[in-house]
């Protein structure tokens, strides 16, 4: 088990996969981080050197990811709602925000448009 950003990962996890488990890191960002520290795309967590794990930890702690990012997104939505804007209301109702039709096909909006968008997050060790 290797601990990165407060979470434990088994040795055989891909580093790319590890990074993309964090809210706010997708394929592009993970590629950028891995390139910066010269980690090859198929690297596994067990194969990282100690220095690389420390660098990754430092990099991740400087980034706005996980709960910080969730809070920012939620704050933005809450601000819209508190101002009483149409977008804020639509978010609160779980309906499409940008003028899409609502007769059919609004599952994405139902899923995503909430005040508490992004959920509560994972619990750090």
């Amino acid at each position: 088990m290797v601990q990165v950003f407060g979470f434990n990962f088994p040795e055989q996890t891909l580093v790319k996969r590890l990074l993309e488990t964090f809210y706010g890191i997708g394929p592009k960002v993970s590629q950028r981080i891995m390139a910066r520290y010269h980690i090859y795309p198929f690297a596994k967590v067990g194969g990282l050197k100690n220095a690389q794990v420390l660098e990754l930890n430092a990099e991740l702690s400087n980034m706005k990811i996980e709960n910080d990012l969730r809070r920012e997104v939620q704050d933005n939505i809450r601000r819209l709602k508190d101002m009483g804007t149409y977008r804020g209301r639509r978010h609160a109702m779980g309906l499409p925000v940008r003028g899409q039709r609502t007769r059919t096909q609004i599952t994405t909006a139902r899923k995503l448009n909430k005040i508490e968008r992004g959920g509560l997050g994972r619990v750090q060790m």
Partner: peptide, 8 residues
């Protein structure tokens, strides 16, 4: 190559 430099 398929490798990336530090500036991607």
């Amino acid at each position: 190559s398929e490798y990336l430099s530090a500036d991607v």
